[in-house]
Amino acid sequence: MTAIRTENLTKRYGDVLAVAGLDLVVEEGEVFGFLGPNGAGKSTTIELLLDYARPTDGEARVLGLDPRSDSRELLRRTGVLPEGVGLYERLTGREHLGIAIEAMEADDDPDAVLERVGLEPEDAGRRAGEYSRGMAKRLALAVALVGDPDLLVLDEPASGLDPLGVRRMRELVHEEAARGTTVFFSSHVLDQVEAICDRVGILSGGRLVAVDTIDGLREAEGTGATVTLRLDGPPSRLASELRGMEGVADAEITGHALCVHCTDPRAKARVIARAERSAATVRDLTVEEPSLESLFADRTGDTTPPSIGRRSGGAGGTDHTAADVGAES
């Protein structure tokens, strides 16, 4: 069953078209990242899915339900972390969860949920008005998790969190996904999206300009990874060997370093294997994955992309894929 399906979903505010004819499908159990620059319409789309706003045209079905007429049932089964969510500053963290548990007719243990999001028991007894921004975000996330939702809708979940908080968020998403929860979250930070999503949709100017897996998007973009080898001796012979390999576009020599441009992700491993078998000794190795930065910039017409592309690696070499990238930038 599809968790989210929209058909020509449109929202107009006056003469501003916030969301234009969105056709989106999110499968049950998926982790779907909704990407786009600020103002692209991500939050508006989320509002339309939850009946926080009414569409001007088109329709949305979430968990098979109509957001407006079935709103109570839908929200019972959904955990929501809205952007700019507010807390009751005079109520304690535990009281917030008490309200959530009662409203969702759940039987969660408040302290267990708070522990999941990384809030200390003594914080649970303090008023939410005293919370730091990160703690407030965690509490809001705890509220969203109450009632074991079938669907988690998170709008910019990592904003305001320190790197540890971002990692905890990522782990939570993994945990929920492992339980079969569909996770739909929006972000304008590519790194977060790359790390955990099954599929990614790119929204720009209210329109969906790309939907695919991370690898699919990379392949479509055509730019492959770059493997940089630092060698002991002159690399010219290795270079010509590598140039002939399948999936290798070019091998540039700079002193003792060799930059191998691969068009096929699988070629990276072959390049490294060949290099290690060759006469020259490999001193160091770096693999630069193409981040979604260029794709993002292209598709959204941005000349200044919102986040930096990533490097990773170390002595001995690391061949990595999107799934196990966990390094904080």
Binding site: L50, L75, T78, P82, G84, V85, Y88, A103, M104, A140
Partner: peptide, 17 residues
């Protein structure tokens, strides 16, 4: 006040109409 502070978004997400 609830609308502008974002608390309404929190509350409506808990299923009250």
């Amino acid at each position: 006040g609830e609308r502008r502070s974002g608390r309404l978004a929190l509350l409506l997400g808990l299923s009250p109409t």
